[in-house]
Each structure stands twice: as C-alpha cells, then as structure tokens.
Design a protein around this nucleic acid. Structure first.
Lengths: 216, 216
DNA sequence: TCGTTACGGAACGCTTGCGTTCCGTAATCA
DNA sequence: TGATTACGGAACGCAAGCGTTCCGTAACGA
C-alpha cells in the first residue's frame, strides 16, 4: 500500500504547491543508505530526514510511520534478478548466482537482507516481504534448471527445489554468514559439484556412495 | 570476560551475604528466553529482570551493561555440536546435520542465530562471536569428511570446505531463511547428492556435465 | 550484636526517538 | 492577488529504556 501510494499521491492535481518528486527519491535513497549503514536499530526518521536534507514533516507527509518507511526501503533495496539464458544449465546457474553474489557484496542489499531474515522471525510483515523476495528470486534459476532437464542435460528425476536450496543456500551462507566471497571461480566449482551430484544420484540409484574401501 | 567472571565472583568469599547462584541462572535463562521471544530490539534489562523475578540492581550487580548481558546470552544459547562417529561419512554427516537442524528448530538458538548474523554486520564483538561459533561448529563435520577421505569413501581431491559450505549452508537456509524444515529425510537426500557430486567431480574430470543432448 | 553485602522493589535523572505542531518561505491555481 | 499546499527547520509532548540510587529486609562473618 504505502509503497505504491507515494507515486500516485505525487501525481494527483489539486490546489497548492505540488509535491517534489526529487524529495521522494532523496528520502528513499537516504532510507536505504541509513538502513544499510546503521542497521534496523540505527534506522531513525530523524537521521533519514537529515541525510535526505529535508524536514521530518516532509517525511511524514509521505509515509505514516517509521515502520512503513523501513518496510518500503526494504522493498526497494534492489535485488531483482535479471534473466539469463546462455544455452546450458551450468552457464545459466553460474551467471545468475555470480550476479546474485556480486549484488550481495556490492550493494546495500547485502547489509539489509540479513536484517530482514532476522526480523522475519518476529514480524509478520517482514516475513511476507522475505517470502515474496525468495519467490521472485527463485523464478529464473528454476526455469534454468527446468530447461536443462528438457534439454537432457539433467535427468528427469532432478529435484529442482533441492538444487536451488543448495546453490542459493551456499551463496547466501558464504556472502552473508561466513563472510567469504562467492566469486565466479567458487560459484563455478559449486555448480559443477551439484550438477554432477544430480546426474550421478539419478544414474547411481539409491546408494550413490560406495561402502568403505578395504583399508587393511 | 563477563561470561567467565560471573561464576568466579559468586565463588569468592568476603564479608556480607553471598551471591545467590540460583539468581545467576534465573537471569541468564530469562535473558535467553527474552532474546529468543522478542529479538534484540525487545531485549530490555527491565524485561529480563522482571522475567527472572529480581530487581534491575541485581542484574547490574552481575553484568555491567545491557550489551554485556546480551552478548553473554548469545554465548550460552546452546548450539555446541556433539561428536558423532557412525563409521561412514554419510552416517556422520546425516547425524550431525540432523542434530544441528533439530536444535535450530526446537531451541531458542534458532531464533537467536539470525539476529547474531544480522548484527555481525554492524558490531565487531558480535562478528567475533559468530566467527567463533562457525569455527567450533565446523570442527566435527570436517573431521568426519577427512575420515571419509582416509577410508577411501571420498577422493583425495575432495574440497572439504566446499562440502561443509554446501551442507551447512543448505541447512541454515532451510531452517532459518526459507522456513522449510531440514528433516532427516531431506538431510539424507542432500548428503547423498553432495557426496555423489564429490565422487563424480573427481572421477569425471573438469567437465562433469555433458553438453546439451540433441533435442531434435 | 554489629558491620557488610545481597535481595526485591521502586523511584530517579537522563537520553533517544517517535510523531506532531508551528514558523517563515516558496510554488501553484483560481 | 488571495487561497492552498509543500518546503526546510525547529520545537514540542510523550514514552521507553538505560544505568543509578535508595529503601526495608535477609543472610553471612566476626
């Protein structure tokens, strides 16, 4: 509601001085920056307004509360995936995951997303934001894997969700939890490992790992 | 410092009424509960004291500040891994990961850990707590994988850290981010997939995934 | 018994931050 | 020109929470 009503209100014509669209953008950019730099605990309306170079009243003319502004900033942190289609599963996955990892590392989103995940445990609205984010984020890679199955690169029994969990999880873990980067080389090797596992799991049947070799 | 000094201080003998060790425990348990139920934002000394059934002064006699108490509560949230040795890599990994997933789901740690990760981006002490946690947590599974290599279950070229990243990452992701459980069945299939990938990556050389099959 | 320290509980001063209100100025419409 | 609304900026009331202090009571050693 809040997110979409801003533009609409700015566009309406009535008597008096119209809203300044530049101020809308300045406040939102300041909100994203403050959220990324100081975290949810340091996200204050006073600081956002100061950073945007406007008065608090100007902020409250557009958003009804601190919570609404914070939620809107999360919505707009900019992690929308761009579609890729290189012709192979491996190419698509490596490109998509590298793109994702780079954004986590180099945009405010990487500092904001962990806070969203943490807050989702206590906040219904944040939980919905996170769910929507994950849904949107998995669409393209899911299609990439499905294309791979259609092409015959991967077996029909491929567990698509498990592949996405593994690859998304490891990038998330490295970039946001352990702090190690998921660079293109690493992503390439991870994708190779997982795709090899998918192929071999299907081909090898229910016991893909051999018993211990004779050691004595 | 704070964490270890509590017991020591309670043990010292001097004039006057001695500290009540039960109160120590009540405050710490209340702190863990409040942190898990309300999150870092709702973690207030007043609430912890009320929950523990004691006065705020009694809390401040033991911890110098809210931050110290919070950090101590994080230290004691209880996610220490228990060693497992079933005789196979698969058995060890499935047991250890299932144990980890269960604790994340059924103890306060699962609600606290994401907050720790999020706060680590802004707080040096929390970053150190997280680093120590990850180091401790990876020890046993690392040894399990190394035993598997020694036994010949896995190739010598196995990238141990990548295996741990993948398996730890996917459990973390499912339990704490997407909200889907990593139950024993799921864990078993994930471990199978990853171990199959490790074996096949080594056996198949640098191009584990075949090119697209002829599609028509 | 006396001095010392801990206890639960209440109150305190202080700071921070939310959301509101008001000011003088600027932009737009009738 | 006058009415209306937005602007940056400052101030306000209010609530929450930190850390401290004090109270009367309780437990310990000398």
């Amino acid at each position: 509601m809040t997110a979409t009503s801003v533009g609409a209100e700015a566009a309406r014509r009535g008597p008096g001085r119209p809203r300044d669209a530049w101020v809308d953008a300045a406040i939102m950019q300041a909100a994203i920056d403050v959220l990324a730099e100081r975290g949810p605990r340091g996200f204050t309306v006073d600081l956002v307004a100061a950073r945007a170079g406007c008065g608090k009243a100007t902020v409250y003319r557009r958003w009804p509360s601190r919570a609404a502004l914070l939620l809107d900033a999360v919505h707009r942190m900019g992690l929308a995936p761009e579609p890729v289609d290189t012709g192979t599963v491996r190419g698509d996955l490596v490109a998509g995951l590298t793109q994702f990892a780079t954004k986590l590392r180099e945009t405010p989103a990487g500092r904001i997303l962990p806070a969203v995940v943490a807050d989702a445990a206590f906040n219904t609205e944040m939980r919905e934001v996170l769910a929507a984010f994950l849904r949107d984020r998995r669409g393209h890679p899911r299609e990439a894997v499905l294309r791979g199955v259609e092409r015959g690169e991967l077996p029909p029994s491929t567990d698509v969700d498990m592949v996405l969990d593994l690859l998304g999880g490891v990038v998330f873990y490295r970039e946001l939890v352990s702090g190690d980067p998921a660079d293109p080389d690493y992503v390439g090797r991870v994708v190779d490992l997982v795709l090899a596992g998918v192929s071999r799991s299907a081909a090898g049947g229910p016991r893909p790992v051999p018993g211990p070799a004779a050691t004595g």
